[in-house]
Design a protein around this nucleic acid. Structure first.
Length: 484
RNA sequence: GGGGUUGUAGGGUAGCCUGGUCCAUCCUAUGGCGUUCGGGACGCCGUGACCUGAGUUCAAAUCUCAGCAACCCCA
């Protein structure tokens, strides 16, 4: 009898593979956690479930909140004429193998093919040419949240490597000087760090090596995080475009002296990879774990009924109403299931707090509160439930961030040799001295079979050592990792 | 870029090698009714599938080819 029970419970648990088997866990949780339906019959295209879309909506609301401080949201067309798309040589080289083309209108062939935007520089900058007249028009800071298309030839993966990126937030700014644009790149990185801090996701910022920058940029700053399987995920980039695009798209302003000057530009983007990170960094063997700010349901109330239990139902409804009045997203689960089944269900969905109200609680004039992030269970007075819940939200986000940060730091290894790097990158990120020379960097990548993310900002990028290739002394530390 | 494996109810699987036993197995899910309810309840009655196309054959879930899709490994 006991063994039968054990077998049965193992079968149930097997509905979500363990997180230690990250690849399977990831694929499965998207479906079971109702984030995305991966069964759409076109490679690299996936469907947002309503629940997942809700998480997305709340995540992007944070993004909008941060950008709306001094950006304007706009919307540019999906289709870009070939004539505009083909203007910037570097840019074309970077994207030409990934572009979807619209070649026909109905049955007639188009005179000028139309590209489905893989990113929107070439859609936006012809308009910037028209909009920018004088230094008084600058800076311009515009963003849009759109879908983009890239014909990925590598293995596609939901939320991570897509043929349709459904949630591309791209900002495009125009400035008078190179330095102002550089300042904007810094500002963009700060915004992204704040964004990820709100999602309780720790990040590493680094300047990408020259061979890995955005096609057409002077340089690229990138925000990475570490996934459970030890690979890094690039979850945000900011590019200094210099005057490269201004020259090809003829974006000029009249300066204080009445002279025509090329404008300096930046662009920076974040995609639904942010959601991939959110799910992967916090989730566990039981399912999603969501920070309260983005959880579609923040509090679930489970009545524990015995016999005729109208009092319990009453108490649950009253608590639900009180919490809703406080503006919280509350769900009272009155479905006809046993409490245990409901616990599993809401844990899978990452609901930050679960309240249980049963006869015992009623007798003690109390509510049982269970945290999703720690599993801790405590009893709090019925009358102070609002206070207790709101208080715990802060604790949960803080705990999620600290836990994730600890886990990230534990998997960063400072190395002295490429052999050590090889070993370190099977677990996470390796730090290694690097002279910053291109040939040495490429040799290092070749030798260990992983990428150089760049020289990270902060302490991580400092330290003296010897470049493993040219053996010169250097003060900069690069980080290397297997990447998505 | 190269190689491999796979495609059967909403999900996971058995059957395929050796064509006919299969209007297809088991678990789960799901609809109805009743009894239940402090960590995945139980009973009864129901629902639901052979990826697409072509070929071989008296006969195809099973064999062949192509397409689409998924997964894994290497670079």
């Amino acid at each position: 009898m006991v063994t039968l029970m054990q077998v049965k419970s193992e079968e149930k648990k097997a509905s979500l593979p363990q997180k230690s088997n990250f690849s399977e866990w990831y694929n499965e949780i998207l479906l079971t956690g109702e984030i995305m339906d991966v069964r759409y019959p076109v490679k690299g295209l996936y469907v947002w479930f309503p629940f997942g879309f809700d998480v997305r909506k709340r995540t992007y609301a944070i993004m909008r909140e941060l950008l709306d401080r001094d950006h304007k949201e706009a919307l540019f067309p999906l289709l870009i004429p070939e004539t505009e798309f083909m203007k910037e040589a570097e840019h074309i080289k970077g994207f030409e193998n990934e572009v979807y083309w619209v070649t026909h209108g109905g049955t007639s062939e188009l005179d000028i093919k139309l590209a489905l935007r893989p990113t929107s520089e070439t859609a936006i900058y012809p308009m910037y040419r028209v909009w920018v007249r004088s230094h008084a028009d600058l800076p311009i800071k515009i963003y849009q949240i759109v879908n983009t298309f890239r014909y990925e030839t590598k293995h596609t993966r939901p939320l991570i490597r897509l043929r349709e990126i459904t949630s591309f937030k791209e900002a495009h700014t125009v400035h008078c000087t190179w330095d102002e644009a550089a300042e904007q790149v810094k500002e963009a990185v700060h915004i992204y760090q704040e964004f990820y801090r709100r999602l309780a996701i720790p990040t590493i910022v680094s300047k990408r090596p020259d061979w890995d920058k955005f096609p057409g940029a002077d340089y690229t700053m990138a925000v990475d995080t570490l996934m459970p399987d030890g690979k890094t995920l690039q979850i945000g980039t900011a590019h200094h475009l210099g005057t490269n695009f201004a020259k090809t798209f003829d974006i000029k302003y009249e300066d204080l002296n009445g002279e025509q000057q090329y404008a300096h530009q930046t662009c920076y983007g974040i995609s639904e990879r942010s959601i991939a990170a959110l799910i992967s960094v916090h989730g566990d063997d039981k399912g999603l774990v969501l920070p309260p700010e983005v959880a579609p349901v923040q509090v679930v109330i489970i009545p524990v009924l015995f016999g005729k239990s109208e009092e319990i139902t009453e108490a649950c409804r009253s608590v639900a109403l009180r919490l809703k009045t406080k503006g919280l997203r509350v769900e009272l689960d009155e479905s006809d299931e046993r409490p245990g089944a409901k616990y599993y269900k809401w844990e899978m969905k990452g609901t930050p707090l679960r309240l249980e109200i049963g006869p015992r609680d009623l007798k003690n004039n109390a509510v049982t509160v269970v945290r999703r992030d720690t599993g801790s269970r405590e009893t709090v007075p019925f009358d102070s439930i609002e206070y207790e819940v709101e208080n715990k939200f802060g604790d949960i986000t803080r705990n999620l961030f600290e836990k994730a940060e600890r886990s990230l730091n534990e998997r960063i290894t400072r190395c002295g040799t490429l052999e050590e790097v090889k070993h370190a990158i099977s677990e996470g990120i390796a730090g290694i001295p690097w002279c910053k020379e291109r040939e040495c960097g490429l040799a290092m990548e070749e030798a260990v079979g992983a990428g150089i993310l760049g020289i990270p900002e902060g302490e991580l990028g400092l330290g003296s050592g010897i470049c493993p290739v040219c053996k010169k002394e250097t003060l900069s530390m690069a980080i290397m990792a297997k990447t998505y």
